[in-house]
Write a protein that binds this DNA or RNA. Structure first.
Length: 902
RNA sequence: GCCGGGGUGGCGAAAUUGGCAGACGCGCCAGACUUAGGAUCUGGUACCGCAAGGUGUAGGGGUUCGAGUCCCCUCCCCGGCACCA
């Protein structure tokens, strides 16, 4: 490192803390709510939000200030433009790391959390962010978690009405088991259990079979868990993305995660004979009109299609197995069927001869983690159950297999296999020598279909795409799209199938077996759950000395025996909520953070979230890592609150911007092990907060991934020092005084043009979040001023005002040294005069056949004909057109001249 | 494999959306001031060439008076998803 006593190019170490104190003392960034004193209803609102941090022990890294500086610039700029700006900050403070740390050190997580928050807050304040700290929220505060629990009660107390496609109070449900439709419900389901963390995790928190936090292995285990019915909103979560101003990539990520696919559910009867010849009479699919309607109605009544919830088998053989397919048009090409090994019917259909093999295969599958199961994807495996199913359209008997390439959790957990038109089925069929029958042709082949026998030679390759149906009875000749519609209507008429939409999205596993989270406001009595009354909130976690996971899946709260006991006959739920709970609604709490009566007052919500054109948060900046986690969960909660009438808009975040990752100077991801981590505190000590802010914005486009460069920081620091010396100089005593070159003189035309161009460009660039180009324009402007003597003070003041959102401390200091009125943070954003930007003379590049040959300067309103004549008289032009005929002269006014000659 | 984003000097990047490629900054070179410079200031800096000139935005083709920008093909890098029937 350099010598510690290296002279500072300007005294940022003194002025920065001083101005931070002034802003805090004067409440510069406090913003009033409607109805509060000082609220100005004439101003429009602007809500600019950061993803609040998890206050980890490691403190801030340089990635945090990237997004935070961007929003700070926007916030300060919008304030100067006359908006009421809501720009808050808070702490996502529940979570695993604090608890893991607590277990290691024995220190209570509440303590470490408080320390970490103090550390984080100090760091953020030293960067000079203009947050309204009076609105600070902390998800672990009783006054906050109370409302998290209250929102949970709203979920518990409502259901999704498929008629209205909205969440409604459970009272509007007319069925007899409300517990089956609540948006928060309990289910015994196979879940992601992480032994190392001692908790279950949501699908979204498991990456490649490992926990997102810590990378520990995760296994499947059936457990009783709280779930949130996010799947009910799957369609709306897709549809309502449309109006959002979000990066296309994030929208697609969410769409793919929700994973809508259209297709059909088809029921295959199980051949009761199991082994033997196909039942007589089963044959070609009858026309719908020929069908005995009554017998079909009976069939339809037996809609026990889905996998039964209980694994306990019934002695009776199930009559049929429903499968989901996106290609019902290939039904005639189904040559076998596959069930997930976990499928509940397996026990009942397996034949004695195959029992041993099936058992062995199922055990092998159960031992595999999710990771193994996908890693071994290349090699297909499976076992025949010995049973057959009947293809409902042609009566054909097809063998029923089990294989782990069919997932228990998607669709019905069973598929019809069409090896000719599905790659996975193709591989499987090849491996086990199962028949392959083409029923789709790439080309429309007249006459190949009809009643022709399907016993053609097996196709040589798998055709996955669309085409025209062949060997498919009544579908023959139809293009895939029509064939799908046709077969679905026939299946529906027959009562053996129906159009279905499936989603990959699973319900949200919402309980954790951890201590450091919101307890559920639920008690259990006689084996049934019920909600606490609102008046019993907040329900804070019990004080515990030993909050280690039990390792058995029993939550640590179970150790708080007194706390658990709710009454003689009732006990408290001991699970806690996941970290996402608090972050699902914090943006609403900021609107009215101290409210003890309501999670947010109606007026505050309507002003900050409802006002403006589309409403909601006007700008949300954060990393891309929350694409399918926080951003999906929060949308879901918001929609429920909207349906129940608590919030104004269906969507919480109107505009979303992802800041890019900052890499180490070696171009690698920053990490302790690589030793390339940059600590913002060090940068502030060496170069100042303004330099840190400006450098992070100058590095490149906000959304791009970009490497850190210390000499880049130095360059930006030099720029700020040049601005400083524009105004200040050192006297004999080594004191900084206002330079005598700064005078009340009128700027000349050239300077005026630069100043106005800077006001224009910086304003426009801020609106577009193009901060790097805004800064380079301010550098150009500074360079234009630096050699002037005298330097017009009006020009300097204007530069300082546009610089203020970027380098607020420096701008405040110089503003006050120049006797500016009030704080620069409260100035009005300057306007520019477009007339001043117009040059009197224009320099045209002159091209011959598209190649630059010369330049010519003409008056800005010279007629095209004059320009043309002047250009043709240029010696270089004459030279390059010698011996050629001039075909055309293109004059683009204000742009260039191109001569076409050959 | 599929989806998305990207490939421009030694480096980070600009480019008014089809109009002078490389603004601004870093680095480097030269000079000034200096006992000194890791401070400051001035000038230079895409590549080849002494020059005239030529060549250049991953590679190839196309549209156009004109392409980094639009169209087609290929390659490479980053991110996400990944047996979802």
């Amino acid at each position: 490192m350099s010598t510690p006593e290296r002279r500072k190019p300007y005294p940022f170490d003194q002025i920065e803390p001083a101005w931070q104190r002034v802003w805090a003392e004067r409440g510069t960034f406090k913003v009033a709510n409607p109805g509060d004193p000082g609220f100005d209803p004439k101003r429009p609102k602007y809500y600019v939000l950061d993803m609040f941090p998890y206050p980890s022990g490691a403190g801030l890294h340089v990635g945090h200030p990237e997004g935070y500086t961007a929003t700070d610039i926007i916030g300060r700029y919008k304030t100067m433009c006359g908006f009421n700006v809501l720009h808050p900050m808070g702490w996502d403070a529940f979570g695993l790391p604090a608890e893991q740390y607590a277990i290691k050190t024995g220190q209570h997580p509440a303590l470490t959390t408080a320390e970490n928050i103090a550390h984080f807050k100090g760091q953020l304040q030293r960067i000079g962010f203009g947050y309204d700290w009076s609105r600070e929220v902390n998800t672990t505060d009783a006054g906050y978690l109370r409302w998290t629990q209250w929102i949970f009660l709203q979920l518990y107390g409502s259901w999704f009405n498929p008629e209205t496609q909205r969440a409604e109070p459970i009272a509007t449900f007319t069925g007899d088991e409300p517990d089956h439709v609540r948006l928060a419900y309990v289910a015994e389901a196979p879940v992601n259990w992480c032994p190392e963390l001692g908790t279950v995790l949501a699908n979204e928190e498991v990456i490649d079979g490992k926990s997102e936090v810590g990378g520990h292995p995760v296994e499947r285990r059936p457990m009783r868990q709280w779930m949130l019915r996010i799947t009910a909103f799957a369609q709306r979560l897709i549809d309502e993305l449309e109006g959002l101003d979000w990066p296309i990539g994030i929208k697609l990520l969410q769409q793919n995660w929700i994973g809508r696919s259209e297709g059909a559910e088809v029921r295959f009867e199980i051949d009761p004979g199991r082994v033997g010849v196909p039942p007589a009479g089963a044959g070609i699919l009858p026309e719908p009109s020929e069908v005995d309607v009554q017998s079909l109605a009976d069939e339809r009544a037996d809609d026990s299609g889905r996998m039964p919830e209980s694994a306990g088998g019934t002695p009776n053989l199930p009559r049929n197995i429903p499968v989901f397919t996106t290609r019902p048009d290939t039904l005639y090409g189904a040559t076998y069927m596959v069930l997930a090994p976990e499928h509940a019917f397996v026990d009942q259909i397996v034949t004695e001869e195959q029992l041993a093999a099936v058992e062995e295969y199922r055990e092998k599958t159960a031992r595999k983690s999710d990771l193994d199961r996908t890693e071994l994807a290349k090699e297909k495996s499976g076992v025949w159950t010995g049973a057959f199913a009947i293809n409902p359209v042609n009566g054909e008997r097809i063998p029923i297999w089990i294989a782990d390439y069919v997932l228990p959790g998607y669709g019905t957990g069973a598929i019809m296999a069409v090896p000719a038109h599905d790659e996975r089925d193709w591989e499987f069929a090849r491996k086990f020598a199962l028949p392959i029958r083409a029923v789709v042709s790439e080309t429309a082949t007249l006459g190949l279909g009809g009643g022709s026998s399907p016993c053609e030679a097996e196709p040589l390759e798998c055709l996955v795409g669309e085409g025209f149906a062949i060997h498919s009875g009544p579908l023959d000749g139809l293009p895939t799209r029509l064939a799908k519609a046709e077969i679905i209507s026939r299946l529906e008429a027959l009562g053996v199938g129906k159009k279905t939409i499936n989603f990959k999205l699973r319900d949200w596993l919402f309980s954790r077996q951890r201590y450091w989270g919101e307890p559920f406001p639920i008690v259990w009595e006689n084996g049934r759950h019920r909600a606490l009354d609102e008046s019993e909130l907040p329900l804070t976690p019990p004080p515990l000395d030993d909050f280690k996971p039990t390792g058995t899946g029993e939550p640590p709260l179970a150790k708080a025996t007194d706390w658990i006991r709710y009454s003689e006959t009732a006990t408290r739920e001991t699970n806690t909520m996941p970290q996402w709970a608090g972050s699902c609604w914090y943006y609403l709490r900021y609107c009215d953070p101290k409210n003890g009566e309501r999670f947010v007052s109606r007026e505050a919500e309507q002003y900050w979230m409802g006002g403006g054109k589309p409403g909601g948060v006007d700008l949300y900046v954060g990393g891309t890592e929350h694409a399918v986690l926080h951003l999906l969960y929060a949308r879901f909660w918001h929609k429920v609150l909207h349906d129940l009438g608590y919030v104004s808009t269906p969507e919480p975040f109107q505009r979303l911007v992802n800041q890019g990752l900052i890499l180490g100077s070696d171009g690698q991801k920053m990490s302790k092990s690589r030793g390339n981590v940059v600590n913002p505190d060090d940068v502030i000590v060496e170069y100042g907060a303004d330099a840190l802010r400006c450098y992070e914005m100058f590095m490149g486009p906000l959304e791009a991934t970009k490497p850190w460069s210390m000499s880049g920081v130095e360059g930006v620091a030099r720029f700020l020092a040049r601005v400083w010396r524009l105004v200040m100089e050192e006297n004999q005593l080594g004191e900084w005084v206002v330079s005598p070159a700064v005078q009340k003189v009128e700027p000349d035309k050239a300077l005026l043009r630069v100043i106005h161009a800077t006001v224009k460009k910086v304003g426009e660039d801020i609106e577009e979040l193009s901060f790097n180009t805004a800064i380079s324009q301010m550098m150009i402007c500074t360079n234009a001023l630096v050699n002037l003597n005298p330097r017009p003070v009006s020009a300097i003041r204007t530069l300082l005002v546009v610089l203020a959102p970027f380098a607020p401390h420096l701008a405040e200091e110089l503003w006050s040294r120049l006797d500016g009125d009030g704080l620069i943070a409260s100035q009005t954003w300057p306007t520019y005069d477009p007339a001043l930007l117009v040059m009197d003379e224009v320099e045209y590049p002159v091209q011959v056949n598209g190649k630059l040959r010369d330049k010519i300067t003409v008056s800005k309103d010279a007629p095209t004909a004059d320009v043309e004549a002047a250009v043709l008289a240029l010696p270089k032009v004459i030279e390059h057109t010698a011996g050629k005929t001039i075909r055309k002269v293109i004059v683009v006014p204000g742009r260039l001249v191109n001569i076409v000659a050959n």
